[in-house]
Design a protein around this nucleic acid. Sequence first.
DNA 1: CTCAGATTGTGAAAAATATCACGACTTATT
DNA 2: AATAAGTCGTGATATTTTTCACAATCTGAG
Lengths: 209, 209
Amino acid sequence: MDQNKIPQATAKRLPLYYRFLNNLNQQGKKRVSSKELSEAVKVDSATIRRDFSYFGALGKKGYGYNVEYLLGFFRSTLDQHEITEVALIGVGNLGTAFLNYNFMKNNNIRITKAFDADPEKVGKEIRDIPVYHIDDLEKLANIKVAILTLPADEADAIANKLVENGITGILNFTPARITVPKSIRVHHIDLAVELQALVYFLKHYSLEK
Amino acid sequence: MDQNKIPQATAKRLPLYYRFLNNLNQQGKKRVSSKELSEAVKVDSATIRRDFSYFGALGKKGYGYNVEYLLGFFRSTLDQHEITEVALIGVGNLGTAFLNYNFMKNNNIRITKAFDADPEKVGKEIRDIPVYHIDDLEKLANIKVAILTLPADEADAIANKLVENGITGILNFTPARITVPKSIRVHHIDLAVELQALVYFLKHYSLEK
DNA sequence: CTCAGATTGTGAAAAATATCACGACTTATT
DNA sequence: AATAAGTCGTGATATTTTTCACAATCTGAG
Ligand SMILES: NC(=O)c1ccc[n+]([C@@H]2O[C@H](COP(=O)([O-])OP(=O)(O)OC[C@H]3O[C@@H](n4cnc5c(N)ncnc54)[C@H](O)[C@@H]3O)[C@@H](O)[C@H]2O)c1
Ligand SMILES: NC(=O)c1ccc[n+]([C@@H]2O[C@H](COP(=O)([O-])OP(=O)(O)OC[C@H]3O[C@@H](n4cnc5c(N)ncnc54)[C@H](O)[C@@H]3O)[C@@H](O)[C@H]2O)c1
């Protein structure tokens, strides 16, 4: 799609930069250096400059970056000028927490529809977000992104139904590794794995770098 | 600590391997190849063999890996033979979801204590996990790992108090980037960033690799 | 107008990670 | 016993990501 793809590692940091720039802007700050940014987001300043440089020369030597300009640039790069709708699948413990969360400080992504299999939950609304039955996936309409917070053993089958109904990006919180066409982008957030990895690091990597 | 450190990328995959091996073992499977593992966990088979090889020769050429042996090996490598206690800080939407979650399928990490500032919550129990006041951090006793699910603007101050009380690893779900001594290991899970990054990838990286 | 100090953008190097591809060995079959 | 098929472990290579380090340039003070 984009001809000049930026590195994935860079892409993953963009939202972080964007959020911090928003903070700065709200504080009325006019300029910022890669050094200040670095301290705030905990990314090496050279990495930040390199990241920015993929988009051209956004700053001024000897001066730094203009906050408002940079913010505007990232806003359009990250499509934050318009709302991106997201669906949530599985209104359980975790799913309900997400629905209740005011996801959206400095961020134009919104969960606008939820789906569940439980008749008790279908038809309700949580914070204005309607809960539909998982069999009514045509209700997805134009939504392209789904958050998976349902039981792991349902994940694969449901993910594939989502894809049939137009979903192209999935944020998967279940421990299941789902199998979908490779044109579909899946990101995993696996809390148990994260915890175990953290414990491993503590045990085996303490102290020195 | 460990003399022969394995790559971080490898360490992050170990819990994933461990979980899948557990599944296989429960299904009564006796052997497994890197190819099968690869399909299940969605990691290239050469990467899996390389990962394993950091620990020595765990498999047999022409045969594959013995499930039980490998499982036992990872169990001790990941300290799964004994329970690792974890504290949760901030019993709100997200924190409550974690407390309610039966975190612990094939996994010996347990949240055993929670802390909050809200007098309404302090003194209660959620699924047998007591909620203490955030000023009573000596109740942490020997716990080394904390999960941060409190408001972002409290994160930095509380994180530093946790460190003073013996915490050495933090899993931070708040959007705040906390500043702690560098001997402390912090992993961030930033849901908003993950979502935005996913949307960015969809928009700019569709189709081809 | 000049100059000291700050800060970018980027070539080059380093480090980390992933993948290829094959020799060596194992198992199972005939 | 010989052979075919399967699979590991790993040297070598490729790719990705991070970091160094500095010339080029801008700002702001005097
Ligand atoms: N809660 C946590 O803290 C936590 C932590 C890590 C991982 N997870 C994972 O997140 C997922 C959800 O966890 P949870 O604690 O919210 O579980 P939960 O049981 O509370 O919620 C699951 C929800 O999914 C719904 N559901 C079941 N089958 C469905 C289907 N076919 N289609 C649509 N909805 C369906 C259920 O009705 C329920 O509302 C699980 O896979 C879990 O492993 C949860
Ligand atoms: N809920 C979500 O889906 C979600 C998603 C992404 C990120 N987060 C982040 O996770 C954090 C928690 O979110 P939430 O929705 O659970 O918020 P919440 O407001 O529901 O819960 C916060 C809890 O922290 C407690 N608290 C406040 N100050 C405290 C202190 N000093 N010490 C201890 N506890 C204190 C509050 O009493 C409350 O129980 C926030 O930083 C939020 O940005 C939440």
